[in-house]
């Protein structure tokens, strides 16, 4: 029973992180219908930036954290401005190939700077953050990831629900032509969704780095796991991304615990195949409101 609880908690926390990083992916897809194959690299980039700031520059942790997020935000903006904007209006396949190219480029750059070895952060979270739940101890990282994730989720929820810019972003996702006709700055919306996606990816990169250690290959591999998560949740549902993430996280953790750890890496993709066969729009994919 203790083992089960431990797996449950690990799975939920991991899944929550998957969900958060998938959220960024979904955001880009929703606003500009671009599938971002460089998402894993954005995750890794966040982790390495934080590493560099904490260990090389020696900046205090909270400031490093915020600084990393800020840089990731700007980085997303720049990527959109210089790489994706010139391709607006071109066939989708070009854009997707571009993101694949970007992924290789970023990965190469990171390998060049940090190498392929496993890095670890110094102990940055106080051990007192750990919570004893009966027989189960929840490590501080998980608590932190949960808290940070929830904060981000509610901030974005409020942003999209109430702020004007958030409403403009949703309007572009909903009906791009009508948004254009009202003067919504559609390109700015694309840039903003890349920036936000990159910020969220960076954040989950940091937390995943704390949990698993930082390695270019592992972290960018998590970008691939975004696919089962979003296909399960529905490609265009932000809430679905979170739920999909939780389900995939739990599945991974339980298969890892009860069956075999090597299988746990594969399980998400088995789910991906089955979901595509059975319910291609995912659990929360858009049910089109049809009225003429």
């Amino acid at each position: 029973m203790d083992f089960f609880l431990q797996l449950l908690i690990n799975g939920l926390c991991l899944g929550f992180l998957y969900g958060l990083s998938a959220m960024g992916f979904v955001m880009i897809f929703k606003s500009s219908s671009v599938l971002n194959f460089a998402h894993g690299e954005l995750i890794a980039l966040g982790a390495f930036l934080f590493l560099a700031l904490v260990t090389w520059a020696g900046i205090p942790i909270p400031i490093s954290f915020l600084l990393t997020l800020a840089v990731c935000f700007c980085f997303g903006f720049i990527v959109e401005r210089f790489f994706l904007r010139p391709l607006i209006g071109e066939p989708l396949i070009f854009v997707i190939m571009l993101t694949v190219g970007l992924a290789s480029m970023f990965k190469g750059l990171m390998l060049l700077i940090w190498g392929g070895n496993l890095h670890t952060y110094p102990d940055i979270l106080p051990a007192s953050l750990a919570i004893q739940l009966g027989p189960v101890t929840i490590p501080p990282v998980y608590i932190a990831s949960l808290v940070i994730g929830l904060i981000f989720l509610s901030l974005f929820g409020l942003f999209f629900k109430y702020s004007s810019q958030g409403i403009y972003m949703r309007s572009v996702a909903d009906n791009q032509r009508a948004a254009l006709s009202l003067g919504v700055h559609v390109k700015r919306v694309f840039a903003l969704s890349w920036a936000i996606a990159s910020l969220v990816a960076g954040m989950s990169g940091i937390v995943l780095g704390i949990i698993n250690g930082i390695n270019v290959h592992n972290l960018s591999g998590i970008g691939l796991k975004v696919f089962p998560v979003v296909i399960l949740g529905g490609l265009d549902s932000i809430g679905g991304a979170i739920i999909g993430g939780l389900i995939i996280g739990l599945l991974e953790s339980f298969t890892g615990g009860y069956i075999s750890t090597s299988l746990s890496e594969v399980v998400p993709f088995i789910v991906l195949v089955f979901i595509l066969l059975i319910k291609p729009y995912g659990l929360f994919g858009l049910v089109e409101i049809e009225r003429v």
């Binding site: 004007s164 409403i167 309007s171 909903d174 009906n175 009508a178 009202l182």
Partner: peptide, 16 residues
Amino acid sequence: PFKYLTIEENLRVGTA
């Protein structure tokens, strides 16, 4: 219309 936005949110897009 923006189908998945409420009436008031639709109107707010007009302030773009």
